[in-house]
């Protein structure tokens, strides 16, 4: 008897809810009574997070002409919603580094997730979407369900991984055969539990099957494409891992041409090291390498 996606999420108490500080900031962002400096004061209760955020805001991606040294100034230049999403990214990463597993190295997991996040943000920017950080979050979290699966049902997870590599199957198909659900189902369940925006939940749930999503959320198409680009370009697995099939509709709904892909790949490579080291400071992966 295997567990369901919902039971896996419910049973992983370490990540069952987002930390209080994010929940408070999330409420403050949506409440017009709070100002940028109120949010700055709330964030300053977590100095490590404040320092990390300021490092990210001062990175070349934002390319601001002068140094930003306070949270309230960061809010005035990038906007309160973008800042909330940056807080979310750093919060989630911190939450999950305390959840190691024996199947997959956390380093390569987060490398793939970060690459996908960066490409998703570049695609969104090219497609002139508002709030590109939301696309970054959706990309960063697209495989998050895998971490819960590795932790809760490692034997089945290993069987699915072996089956996929042995039969050259897409992992999602192998997971469905072995467990009856996929990492996308578990990830979406977790995002629902966290009460994050619906568009992020859908991007995670349908990143392999955008044709099953009927709301037309751009996040779904963007993360689907970003995942395929990431899998194709930064192939680090020793065994040939198959590239998930493209849903041509996801490509057609965006205002992009094939010539846009290569510059995005170069930009993503230029941004990667800095973003990765800002999100994953210190030696968080040392104890979790398999």
């Amino acid at each position: 008897m295997t567990l369901t996606a919902r039971e896996i999420v419910a049973g992983t108490v370490e990540v069952a809810s987002l930390p209080e500080i994010f929940i408070r900031i999330n409420e403050m962002v949506d409440n017009p009574h709070y100002s940028a400096s109120d949010i700055g004061r709330m964030l300053s209760k977590d100095p490590a997070m404040t320092a990390r955020l300021l490092k990210i805001v001062n990175s070349p991606f934002y390319n601001f002409p002068s140094k930003i040294d306070t949270v309230s100034r960061a809010i005035t230049v990038i906007g309160v919603r973008e800042l909330r999403d940056l807080v979310l990214a750093t919060t989630v990463v911190k939450l999950f580094t305390g959840l190691p597993n024996d199947l997959v190295s956390m380093d390569s997991f987060w490398r793939h997730s970060t690459q996908c996040a960066i490409v998703a943000r570049l695609i969104a920017a090219k497609n002139r979407e508002l709030n590109v950080e939301r696309f970054f979050i959706a990309g960063l979290l697209h495989d998050i369900g895998s971490l819960l699966i590795y932790r809760k049902i490692p034997e089945l997870a290993r069987e699915a991984l072996l089956r996929a590599s042995h039969n050259d199957e897409v992992l999602e198909i192998a997971e469905r055969q072995v467990m009856g659900f996929t990492h996308a189902d578990v990830g979406a369940e977790l995002i629902r539990k966290w009460r994050l925006p619906k568009n992020i939940e859908e991007a995670v749930e349908y990143h392999h099957l955008p044709q099953n999503c009927h709301t037309g959320a751009k996040e779904v198409a963007v993360v689907h494409l970003a995942n395929i680009i990431t899998a194709a370009i930064w192939d680090t697995a020793p065994e040939p891992m198959v590239i998930p099939p493209l849903d041509p509709k996801a490509w057609e709904v965006l205002d992009l041409t094939p010539d846009d892909i290569e510059p995005m790949v170069s930009d993503a490579e230029l941004q990667f090291e800095e973003i990765f080291s800002n999100l994953f400071t210190e030696n968080v992966f040392k104890r979790s390498a398999s």
């Binding site: 050259d168 897409v170 494409l225 395929i228 680009i229 194709a232 370009i233 192939d235 040939p240 891992m241 198959v242 590239i243 998930p244 099939p245 493209l246 041509p248 490509w251 094939p258 010539d259 892909i261 290569e262 790949v265």
Partner: peptide
């Protein structure tokens, strides 16, 4: 690695080229 993709699709074709 590209076996599940349509090599005639313009997006996939460009990805294979890169």
């Amino acid at each position: 690695r590209f076996q599940y993709n349509d090599l005639k699709n313009s997006f996939i074709k460009e990805l294979v080229r890169i």
